[in-house]
């Protein structure tokens, strides 16, 4: 078990949270080897600007709080911010949408670009225990439900089988001039979710959606860890 991840989860539980914030979720994922987007958590407009300069434009700005799990639907995400001016405008707009009671922080992220989005996840199945999912990500996740599951622990061969098992598996190949997805990196990420599921019985679900394929490498740009009993 990763002790730093354990401390993050423990702190969230102590604070009575039922989910980890996006920032904390991705910290845990990263500690288990899932590639995640570069990001800085900030609490002020000035700090956001400093972070953006450090990360390099364009950036993404998100409200980040354990209480906010549907950021996109609430209009609390701004992508493709190319300048400091655009960042400040987005900051003001999102703060307004978040409302006067919002006391969460702000996440400044690198803008990860790629045409393909996949998703990985974990669920604690009533019959088989922690089970890991791979499938099409982004808006297609729910529409096509093109996913495959395996029971943890997930071996590398299982992870490779999961990629081959979805109907749209050819999207992982070098199609339309795109590079083939690095299946080794993808497999490591899938296997990591199995390990997290086995290490932390208090985690009931994980969504890593989407993972954007940048070049050939998948990068988690959003993440949600749900705490159960």
């Amino acid at each position: 078990m990763n002790t730093r991840a354990a401390r993050i989860i423990q702190a969230a539980r102590a604070a009575g949270q039922t989910t980890l914030s996006e920032y904390d979720s991705k910290r845990v994922l990263k500690l288990y080897g899932v590639p995640t987007s570069k990001e800085v958590l900030v609490t002020s407009q000035t700090a956001a600007r400093t972070a953006a300069s450090k990360i390099g434009y364009p950036v993404v700005l998100k409200a980040c709080s354990a209480d906010v799990t549907h950021k996109t639907e609430l209009g609390l995400v701004a992508v493709g911010l190319g300048t400091g001016k655009e960042l400040m405008e987005a900051f003001r707009l999102i703060r307004k949408r978040a409302g006067p009671d919002y006391d969460g922080a702000w996440l400044v992220q690198e803008m990860v670009s790629g045409q393909r989005e996949v998703m990985i996840g974990m669920v604690r199945d009533a019959q088989f225990g922690p089970s890991v999912m791979f499938g099409l990500g982004g808006i297609f996740t729910e529409i096509l439900q093109d996913v495959s599951f395996r029971v943890a622990p997930v071996r590398k061969r299982d992870a490779l089988d999961m990629m081959a098992a979805i109907r749209a598996h050819r999207i992982l190949d070098g199609v339309r001039g795109m590079k083939p997805v690095d299946r080794h990196v993808m497999a490591q990420a899938i296997m990591a979710l199995g390990r997290i599921g086995l290490d932390f019985p208090e985690i009931s679900e994980i969504d890593v959606n989407p993972m954007i394929i940048r070049g050939s490498r998948p990068v988690a740009v959003d993440g949600l860890i749900v705490l159960g009993e």
Partner: peptide, 14 residues
């Protein structure tokens, strides 16, 4: 389910 993964774990997929 609170997350998508949980809702996708239906229909005998697991």
């Amino acid at each position: 389910a609170q997350a998508h993964t949980g809702s996708l774990a239906a229909n005998g997929r697991v």
